[in-house]
Nucleic acid binder design. Structure first.
Length: 602
RNA sequence: GGCGGCGUAGCUCAGCUGGUCAGAGCGGGGAUCUCAUAAGUCCCAGGUCGGAGGUUCGAGUCCUCCCGCCGCCA
């Protein structure tokens, strides 16, 4: 039996997004309002709906979205950051649709490897886990991740759920004990097939020799679920996404399934197997259950049944492609055995490379998400990866491309459009809107075009086409720039009279367009969207209660006073840019040589 | 070795069931407005759509073979 903890943790080099044992994420606070980040979790929402029970109709099922529970053998890397950013964007979009969202992330903290590294640091495992787990939470805060639940596999409630689950599967007759002997990779924490090993029986992942090990373990009878799994995949082809990964999964199932080991006799740092405290439960029957135990509220009775009633099944498990097998094969079979609904879908995204190379510590070319945020700002990081990496495929990061894209889209198209318009409004209208946006846009085709594009973006968001959604929203920005150029309000104001009145209307039209972009883009760039909204004269509270339906044309009313025009997104400058500027006339880009600039505050 | 998939402008890629499909974004070159974050707008890429055959009135778009990548499995 191979596959085990190692998988979740493996994900060696390249930014295996989501790698690690499973990777899960942590909480965060909206950078926007640090204060809000409460102990419970980052997601702070504006006032809003109340799903009180009392009344008639039962509340609609929540939209439960998960990232993997990240393995705490190492601090978060770009891969886990990518998974979590994408999940956050999806969660934010669903909230805009007024869905009750439960965005789950967390950390997977058991296993031999954790105990060993803790010992190496002279600390007990729990302290070690606390530190690493917290580093995830810190990063999520930096990345504007607003999760609802952060589950740690060392949480008491989680252990209770794991025990209940184990008992159910045992009652189903799907757990048996057997001897297992084979070559074991300590780093992966799993047995390996000799066939997959390299020279000197080295593990292909860690390149370290595997050692012979024999122990009796408990096994899960995965093989019994072959037909049910085939059925699931056939009847619900959307269970695995993107679609090309479905073929892979179907192949795995059709080629036959082997039972897998769910316990370890030699590992102490873990949840004891019920009725056999000499063994601990191995990752699959531990960490995967975090998706369910996370649903429990703090302080409430911790049981599997209770947790399931809190909103299971999950609507979407977002993971890196490296752990697809465990989520699309093992996990549903386990749930079937326990008599629990399977999730609606599993989405396996691709890996990230840097300058075309796999990333890895050994190569010394890792991308540190925290560094990126410090240098370029959170909106840039979120936007770049969600826009430039077709969701589901592998993607590449290069600093030059990052700067080009972010500058062209967020600074030149979006930021500058707002800034130039507010500048004109200030100079000619005392920063005050003279018309309602609906009246101003009467008979203007731009309004219809914007509405159509917003609908298109919504559709793309719903289908997890995040990159396409970004592209569509940028089209709106392009239309705005084109419109203002064609109307040339700066000239009309100089003419005065009716021309000036028309110009005043045009500014309202552009600003309303900006308002709509801000809302629709908020799942991707929440901080930037807030800055835009604030400049349009709204409060943060107003921003927080926005729904997708607020993208409907007409939000800006006559009399609304705009803030002082100030760039909402600073271009990322490079050394070359500066030389160009100081010398003769500058060209558009110039070769960049990295170097960032301070962020713009709201 | 078996089974996906891929190979389209410098880069990243769209192109569903064959006939404006030769495109977009970024970069690059040129022009232009001047309100703006030296931003905006407009024009420009003559790319044999990996190669060779074939089907068809007509093929990036279907078939065969070859070359080169990548994934899963063995």
């Amino acid at each position: 039996m191979a596959a085990g903890r190692a998988f979740l943790r493996a994900a060696p080099s390249s930014l295996a997004a989501g790698a690690g044992r499973f990777a899960f994420a942590c909480p965060t606070a909206l950078p926007l309002t640090a204060a809000a980040a409460a102990a419970t979790g980052p997601h702070r929402r504006g006032r809003g709906r109340c799903y009180c029970s009392a009344s008639d109709a039962p509340p609609p099922p929540p939209y439960v979205l998960t990232t993997p529970l990240y393995y705490v053998n190492a601090p978060p890397h770009m891969g886990s950051a990518y998974t979590t950013i994408a999940a956050d964007a999806i969660a934010r979009f669903q909230r805009l649709l007024d869905k009750r969202v439960v965005f789950i992330t967390g950390t997977d903290e058991h296993g031999e490897k954790i105990a060993t590294s803790a010992e190496a640091c002279g600390r007990n495992p729990k302290d070690h886990c606390d530190t690493i787990s917290n580093s995830y939470k810190m990063l999520w805060a930096d990345l504007d991740i607003e999760y609802d639940k952060f589950i740690r596999t060392t949480d008491r409630k989680h252990e209770a759920v794991v025990n209940d689950f184990y008992s159910r599967v045992l009652d189903s007759g799907d757990i048996y004990r057997a001897d297992y002997e084979g070559l074991y990779c300590v780093s992966c924490e799993e047995y390996k097939d000799e066939k997959e090993l390299g020279e000197n029986k080295c593990c292909p992942v860690h390149l370290k020799p595997c050692v012979p090990r024999k122990e009796d373990n408990y096994f899960f009878a995965l093989s019994k679920y072959q037909h049910q799994l085939e059925d699931l995949l056939t009847k619900n082809p959307n269970f695995v996404r993107p679609s090309h990964r479905l073929n892979e999964v179907q192949g795995w199932v059709k080629s036959g399934l082997r039972d897998f080991s769910i316990s370890r006799a030699s590992v102490e740092w873990g949840i004891p197997v019920p009725n056999d405290t000499k063994q601990t439960i191995y990752v699959w029957f531990d960490a995967l259950l975090g998706y369910i135990s996370a649903l429990l509220d703090d302080g409430e009775k911790a049981s599997l049944q209770q947790a399931v009633e809190r909103g299971w099944p999950a609507s979407l498990h977002l993971i890196g492609k490296d752990i697809l097998r465990f989520h699309a094969v093992y996990w549903p079979a386990m749930l079937m055995s326990a008599g629990i609904s399977v999730p609606d879908a599993v989405f396996g995204h691709g890996f990230l490379t840097k300058d075309g190379m796999k990333m890895g510590k050994s190569l010394g070319n890792t991308l540190e998400p925290k560094d990126l945020v410090n240098r370029f700002g959170v909106d840039s990081v979120r936007y770049f990866f969600l826009r430039e990496v077709e969701f589901g495929n592998d993607g590449d990061y290069s600093e030059e491309r990052f700067i080009n894209i972010v500058n062209a889209h967020l600074a030149n198209t979006i930021g500058n459009l707002l800034n130039r318009t507010l500048g004109l409004l200030k100079k000619n209208c005392k920063s005050t809107l003279a018309f309602d946006s609906i009246a101003a846009a009467d008979g203007i085709s731009l309004k219809d075009n914007v509405e159509n594009l917003v609908d298109k973006a919504k559709d793309q968001f719903e289908n997890l086409l995040l990159s396409s959604a970004c592209e569509t929203l940028m089209e709106i920005g392009n239309l705005g720039n084109l419109y203002i150029d064609e109307q040339a309000p700066w000239s009309c104001f100089k003419q005065g009279g009716e021309s000036a009145e028309k110009a005043a209307k045009d500014l309202v039209i552009i600003l309303e367009t900006m308002r709509i972009i801000a809302i629709a883009l908020s799942p991707i760039t929440p901080s930037l969207s807030l800055r835009i909204y604030t400049q349009l004269g709204f409060t943060e509270d107003q921003f927080r209660t926005l729904r997708w339906e607020d993208t409907k044309w007409g939000g800006l009313k006559a009399g609304q006073v705009m803030m002082e025009p100030k760039p909402v997104f600073a271009r990322i400058e490079t050394e070359t840019d500066e030389k160009d500027q100081s010398s003769s006339k500058a060209t558009k880009g110039g070769k960049k040589k990295a170097r960032s600039q301070g962020l713009v505050e709201a």
